[in-house]
């Protein structure tokens, strides 16, 4: 399986970079939002905003890029071709997941670069803390993406499910609109969305609050991810 994965990954990555939607929503959109927030907000809001915008790439790749690519492969019967070969579907999912994660990391790096260079935002918790928070925040989102990828019987269902997950998380999880300015009811919604918890992790990395305070959150997100991945892996449909 590893050999197949190692040969698939560079190809999947090359194909992903050819996908204009992914480049626009995964890379261009988050950087644009960051610049916009920086231009219209106070330095403090910009700093908090940066914590959230880093997660826009996670949502775009995990909830759109990942499930829609796999569903497209199912629709085009690329998966059927895989089935009539010795290949392991896990190798494909892994190669596609890592591809999307690379795009999300590039997106976060660009957002960081623009926030730092244009608005002087600093990550108080340090680079490693930010990357850790980023990966833990990505895990449950990618889990949801994998569930859609594994279960959606056709493109229409995949599109609907991806949109139902993507837009609430984009608007309500604190990625674009800061939860700090939301009314109580909406803030509760942000709390229960997996990405809402991820955004909290990113923000505490930016602010440099003690890591210990985040441990329950990290644990909950990882447990959710492991359970979700097991369901996605065992219920994977080829056609």
């Amino acid at each position: 399986m590893m050999r197949g994965f190692l040969r698939l990954f560079p190809l999947e990555f090359k194909l992903a970079l050819r996908n204009p939607d992914l480049l626009l929503f995964g890379l261009g959109f988050p950087v644009g939002i960051m610049v916009l927030i920086g231009l219209v907000s106070s330095p403090e809001t910009t700093r908090l905003g940066f914590g959230g915008v880093g997660a826009v790439g996670i949502a775009a790749t995990g909830l759109m890029g990942l499930p829609l690519t796999i569903s497209d492969y199912r629709h085009r019967r690329v998966l059927t071709r895989f089935r009539a070969s010795p290949a392991d579907p896990a190798a494909l999912l892994l190669a596609q997941g890592l591809t999307q994660l690379c795009v999300a990391l590039i997106s976060a790096a660009l957002v960081w670069l623009s926030a730092a260079l244009l608005f002087g935002v600093r990550v108080e918790g340090g680079v490693l803390r930010y990357i850790l928070a980023f990966l833990v925040a990505a895990a449950p989102v990618y889990t949801l993406g994998c569930l859609v990828a594994s279960l959606a019987p056709d493109m229409k269902t995949a599109n609907a499910a991806a949109s139902l997950l993507y837009f609430p998380m984009l608007l309500l999880a604190g990625t674009t609109v800061p939860t700090e300015i939301m009314p109580k009811g909406l803030r509760f919604l942000a709390e229960i969305l997996p990405l809402g918890q991820g955004v909290r992790l990113l923000k505490s990395a930016v602010l440099g609050t003690p890591l210990v305070d985040d441990l329950p959150r990290i644990l909950a997100l990882l447990v959710f991810s492991i359970l979700g991945y097991s369901v996605a892996a065992t219920s994977f449909r080829w056609d």
Binding site: L15, R76, R77
Partner: peptide, 9 residues
């Protein structure tokens, strides 16, 4: 395969 089964592009 009767249908091609290729990723787009």
């Amino acid at each position: 395969f009767q249908e091609s089964g290729w990723p787009d592009a």
